[in-house]
Design a protein around this nucleic acid. Structure first.
Length: 442
DNA sequence: CCCCAACGAGTGTTATAAAC
DNA sequence: GTTTATAACACTCGTTGGGG
């Protein structure tokens, strides 16, 4: 068929529209199937480069920021009976990030930062806030965000194209591990303030994977996404082991020892944590292994106190994410897939599927290329109209049946049917189809 | 331990063809 | 004119697993 008309709602306001709207309604029918190419049309840079036949200039995003929170937990309620559960309340203790600045070759430079509750106690704290033009009651998370916006600007400058005409979004990705579940909640209250504003979370309610924060002055955007969605469900430890460098490892930290009463005292101590401190109720009351503790004692010798170790631990958690992400970006780059443009490995796979039809030769590296379809050529005419296609005709029978069913559906759903289209509207719709046809055929 | 998003089985809705 | 069958989704809700 030439095209199938779709009347989305049975509560059509056809007669209503005719009376007051200046807009002339029409039905659009296509006699050539519309191509589906989301991998191109959803990526402005790729769309531009492809339209001008410049795909050889394409480069994927290699600059990004990783971040992580550490918290202190207050036990609000203890185990009183076997029916009563322990509830703990988590507060922000520190936030760390690793900024990745890409070079023109495949190398990159890292800048690591860590802000903690201790910063808010320091004498120069108000001065620091003023440097970023933050209001006096801002938290250390605001301070981190302000600095991150400045860093993002530099990362953007490292990544954008030399040719200013090539569109490139002023947006830098900020990745956390399983952040869509937990870290975002801690970040939430800092995402909207005088200096920047939070956008609507992307997707529907059961698909909130990304939040964009825009700086009001510089219009720089930070897009917070969850790195776990790019690797599939696994622990950070497993991800680093499978995708990263063998030499990197996740360290240990006694979360449950620190609470809002004792943090200042406990973290200022200069001796290492005791073995018993690592016992965790969450992990079934078990502590870390003896080997892990020995490794911790060796690591600790490099630090003057426990706070310094906390900063190191927090930063390390973000730094170990960089290598796996780089490896993933490299893997997809050979197929022209820009991993950081997407928010999940599923959407990368979807884009890969479409690219494999545009550029089959890229996906059959080891095979005899001649036996495959040719790559997409922007100058070729791919339209393929079918002269034998049967045109759609709006018959009285078809229209009657449709009206009847709309009524049935509304009745079953307990809806009002007064404004529904009726059999009497046949002539109007018949006319609408005729005029629409003429427009298309010219 | 609790929280929350993803997942997946089950169920509901809509459009249409064809039989009655 | 009415009923039945079917495909393609959309929605619901309990389970699962990682976060601290």
């Amino acid at each position: 068929p030439i095209g199938t008309p779709i009347v989305q709602s049975s509560q059509s306001n056809a007669s209503h529209n005719r009376a007051i709207s200046n807009h002339e309604p029409s039905i659009r029918l296509h006699d050539v199937p519309m191509p589906i190419c989301p991998a191109i049309l959803n990526h402005p840079t790729v769309e531009y480069l492809m339209a001008y036949d410049l795909m050889d200039q394409f480069k994927v995003q290699r600059g990004f920021i990783t971040y992580d929170f550490e918290t202190l937990s207050d036990q609000v309620m203890k185990n009183i009976t076997d029916q009563t559960t322990v509830l703990s309340q988590l507060h922000k203790l520190s936030i760390a990030s690793t900024e990745v600045y890409p070079n023109n070759n495949k190398s990159y430079e890292l800048v690591k930062r860590c802000y903690t509750l201790f910063d808010e106690l320091s004498d120069s704290y108000q001065e620091q806030l003023e440097n970023y033009q933050l209001p006096p009651n801002s938290s250390f998370v605001h301070l981190w965000l302000a600095q991150t916006f400045e860093s993002a600007e530099e990362i953007y400058q490292c990544m954008k194209y030399y040719d200013e005409n090539i569109p490139f979004d002023r947006c830098v990705k900020v990745l956390g591990w399983n952040s869509s579940r937990f870290d975002i909640a801690l970040l939430w209250d800092a995402l909207d303030c005088e200096l920047w504003t939070m956008g609507v979370p992307i997707g529907s309610l059961n698909n909130t994977k990304s939040i964009t924060v825009t700086h009001k002055k510089s219009h720089m955007k930070l897009q917070f996404i969850d790195a776990e969605n790019l690797f599939g469900p696994m622990t950070l430890k497993a991800c680093v082991k499978d995708y990263g460098d063998k030499t990197e490892h996740k360290d240990v930290f006694p979360y449950e020892l620190i609470n809002s009463k004792n943090w200042n005292e406990v973290l200022m101590k200069t001796e290492p944590f005791e073995y018993e401190d690592f016992k965790s109720q969450l992990k079934g009351g078990y502590s870390i292994t003896k080997d892990e503790y020995d490794q911790y004692l060796i690591d600790f010798k490099r630090f003057t106190n426990r706070l310094d170790y906390l900063k190191y631990y927090n930063i390390n958690d973000t730094e170990i994410m960089v290598k796996p992400l780089m490896n993933l970006i490299d893997t997809f780059e050979q197929f022209n897939i820009d991993v950081l443009h997407y928010i999940s490995i599923a959407s990368c796979a979807y884009a890969t599927k479409h690219y494999s039809t545009y550029y089959p030769s890229k996906f059959n590296l080891e095979s005899d290329e001649q036996s495959y379809y040719e790559d997409f050529d922007i100058n070729t005419d791919y339209s393929n109209p079918n002269p034998n296609a049967k045109p759609f005709e709006l018959t009285v029978r078809y229209w009657k049946s449709k009206c009847y069913h709309y009524k049935q559906q509304d009745y079953n759903a307990g809806r009002e049917t007064e404004k529904n289209v009726t059999t009497d509207d046949y002539d109007y719709y018949k006319q609408l189809f005729e005029t629409s046809f003429r427009q298309i055929r010219q």
